[in-house]
Amino acid sequence: MKDDSPPNSGASGSSGKRDVSRRLFLQTIGISAATAAADRQSANADAAMRPGGATIIGPMPARTSLNVNGAAVDFVAEPATTLLEALRERCDVTGPKEVCDRAACGGCTVLLDDRPVASCMMLALDATGREVTTVEGIGTVDDPDPLQVAMAEFDAMQCGFCTPGVVTSAKALLARNPRPNIDEIRAALSGNLCRCGTYPNIFNAVLVASGQDPVEEPTDRGRTASGGRA
């Protein structure tokens, strides 16, 4: 597996430089203004293109292998395929949503080795050798995660289109901080936009899923409404 992976795939190398993100891809072909950081990363990408480097991938469709929700998935796709496109269009995993397609809304959030990422901003190839977990991998209708149960219980959704991304970001928060306070929850979810307007219910769902009392539930059974930011 590792031998087949492209040198810029992130299978090895120091963290921070290892993702050839879609943003970088665009920058490399001159669409966006280069920044100092991007220059560093472009140098990396250029290296991959040099003869004598390891396998060169593209521009023709290439075999891509992903580990999605614990299952290996193989498909052939153009190297420019984003992780989000690969999940939705190649893996039949449609929990992650395409909303803004530029990491402004969090609708496409997935876990990459337990870290939340915007799958629209990353190439599928860069997820090679990593564990990709989507909302479907966190729990199912028949075997839901307690967080998902709390989301339903607190009506932390209306149309539900942002919900997979919200659940995924919140799950990552709970993994690194098992008892977050409301400000930590607000901050962790600040990249997840909900247009219907369900944030207060989401906060409560996360609090309850982490074994805490809901603070912003106005009609909660017997609780006092003491929440809100000072």
């Binding site: 995993v93 449609t94 929990g95 992650p96 989507t134 909302v135 479907e136 966190i138 729990g139 199912t140 209708v141 839901p144 967080l147 998902q148 149960v149 989301m151 339903a152 219980e153 009506d155 932390a156 959704m157 539900g160 919900t163 997979p164 659940v167």
Partner: peptide
């Protein structure tokens, strides 16, 4: 919400 779990699990 009847479809709450469907929405919360991506189903």
């Amino acid at each position: 919400r009847l479809e709450g779990l469907e929405k919360a699990t991506g189903a």
